[in-house]
Design a protein around this nucleic acid. Structure first.
Length: 458
RNA sequence: GGUGGGUUGGCCGAGAGGCGAGGCAACGGACUGCAAAUCCGUGUACACGGGUUCAAAUCCCGUACCCACCUCCA
């Protein structure tokens, strides 16, 4: 059985055939670090994290590049609002992003290049495009350089659009463009912009256009041709279309497969960066554990639109706790083998919903069995693939004060449970229940198990 | 105008021609002193109208509604 994935470019599910046997080169568009990350951003990261884990488990030597855009219009504009330089703002938001990734157990990529660290590579690519007749410096002396879409007949092939069918942007400032659809490879510095946000170039000081960074960095770290390019659906056009056009026009075959994750919306609206609402990662993590949010994300297919709601997240969290309590009952086990159905699910375009169903089936079998451990071993292995194994150290240890607090509560509850045990032994159930109710009033649930009573925070 | 996607039971969410994915909730039962947990059972769900087929949620035609992208976006 081979891994199959949906390729946006061909619009069908195809066998994954890497360019080089046993290796997989993966480039994913990360974020523009302009504001706090929200649930939608993290969905993309989690989806591609699962892809990375699956490819590795499938035996591929994976090179995973996920870039960070740390210079662009919005960053400059937003930094102004904070009263700090653009680079300071970008760095601060990058730290928030890293925290969010860590909180969701998103494994780090092989390398995480910054746009500002690759200006020479971009300039080189732009010059190649000019030499080949696919780009030109603006005639208006602005210092801008544009990609000439009319010079590239395949323009629009990724998203199956004809140039003449495209609407020109309403706010399109024709500037020095030959065609309104031409896009900026390089932006000449404007007087209003900070000097620090510009770099020297053959066309004067300026900064890179948005798309060129990905072409340059993918080329540098993965080579002119690589296997998979990913990102959110919104990036298909213009970003990915432009990336592909400029890379291929420069003579690079570029990506073999394109993967795009769907949106998470709220109240029917997409989470735009401008909303800045309650769905930032820090705010969601005040109410739910990272592992619960990740489970919620992974329980839906990456290509399906998700309408975010706290009710749905609640349900997911409750369901996930059933898996966790099964593992607690089973005790410590090593990861075992993956059930065939689970492997088949992930091989089929990362079918995580079907994979989660296999986890639940296994949990049920384990709950029925005299010895749950073999089942727990399978469950642990499956959870590891999805990045939601509660025992994974990535979720952090609750040591220190938490542990001291737990010990203190345990000592107090233990005394009460002894009294209750005595009452039960005396068949004085009214007294026994009164003790249990009193403990419950403090927010602690008592359950009787074959191994004696157990308490947990309710 | 162009391009892509969607509409599944009380709710979430898979599936892409033929045994009702899975979860949450609800109800009944087993277990329990009672609970909890766990297990067993209970649902005739596929936007609408036609069509193809022995068989359609799944394919075809049409209709309605929703969403995304068209140079800031995960």
């Amino acid at each position: 059985m081979t891994f199959r994935l949906y390729d946006t470019a061909t619009r069908d599910v195809r066998d994954f055939v890497p360019l080089e046997e046993g290796k997989a080169g993966l480039y994913v568009c990360g974020l523009t670090v302009q504001s706090e990350p929200h649930v939608g951003h993290v969905r993309s990261a989690v989806n591609f994290d699962v892809l990375q884990r699956w490819l590795r488990l499938r035996g591929y030597d994976v090179t995973f590049i996920r870039n960070v855009t740390d210079i662009d219009d919005k960053i400059i504009a937003k930094a102004d609002g904070f009263g700090r330089p653009w680079y300071s703002h970008a760095a601060a938001m990058k730290r928030e992003l890293d925290k969010a990734y860590a909180a969701l157990n998103v494994a780090p990529p092989t390398y995480e290049p910054l746009a500002t660290g690759h200006i020479p590579e971009m300039l080189e690519l732009i010059e190649t495009l000019i030499e080949k007749g696919h780009a030109y410096p603006a005639a208006d002396g602005s210092g801008d350089v544009y990609f000439d879409v009319r010079s590239w007949p395949q323009y629009g092939e990724l998203t199956r659009q004809g140039i003449d069918d495209m609407e020109a942007a309403e706010d399109a400032d024709p500037r020095g463009k030959r065609d309104p659809r031409d896009f900026a490879l390089w932006k000449g510095r404007k007087e209003s912009e900070p000097e620090t946000a510009s770099w020297p170039s053959p066309w004067g000081r300026g900064r890179p256009g948005w798309h060129i960074e990905c072409s340059a960095m993918a080329g540098k770290y993965l080579g002119p041709a690589f296997d998979i390019h990913g990102g959110g659906v919104d990036l298909r056009f213009p970003h990915h279309e432009n990336e592909q056009a400029q890379s291929r026009a420069a003579g690079h075959p570029f990506a073999s497969y394109w993967m795009h994750n769907a949106w998470i919306t709220t109240a029917g609206e997409k989470m735009s960066k401008s909303l800045g609402n309650s769905l930032t990662i820090p705010s969601v993590l005040q109410r739910y554990r990272g592992i619960e949010l990740r489970f919620y994300i992974v329980a839906a297919h990456y290509r399906s639109h998700v309408e975010f709601s706290f009710e749905a997240l609640d349900e997911a969290a409750v369901g996930f706790r059933r898996i966790e309590s099964f593992l607690e009952r089973a005790g410590d086990v090593e990861a075992g083998a993956l059930p065939d159905a689970f492997v088949a699910a992930l091989d089929d375009d990362l079918g995580t919903p079907a994979a989660v169903a296999v986890i639940y089936d296994t949990v049920r079998e384990g709950n029925k069995a005299d010895d749950p451990r073999p089942y727990a071993a399978e469950v642990v292995a499956m959870l590891d693939v999805l990045g939601i194994n509660p025992a994974d150290p990535a979720w952090g240890t609750s040591g220190g004060d938490d542990q001291k607090l737990t010990d203190a509560v345990d000592a107090l509850v233990a005394g009460l449970l002894e009294q209750r045990a005595q009452a039960r032994a005396d068949k004085d159930f009214a007294a026994a229940d009164a003790i249990r109710d009193r403990i419950k009033a403090a927010g602690i649930e008592v359950e009787d198990t074959p191994h004696g009573p157990k308490w947990s925070i309710s």
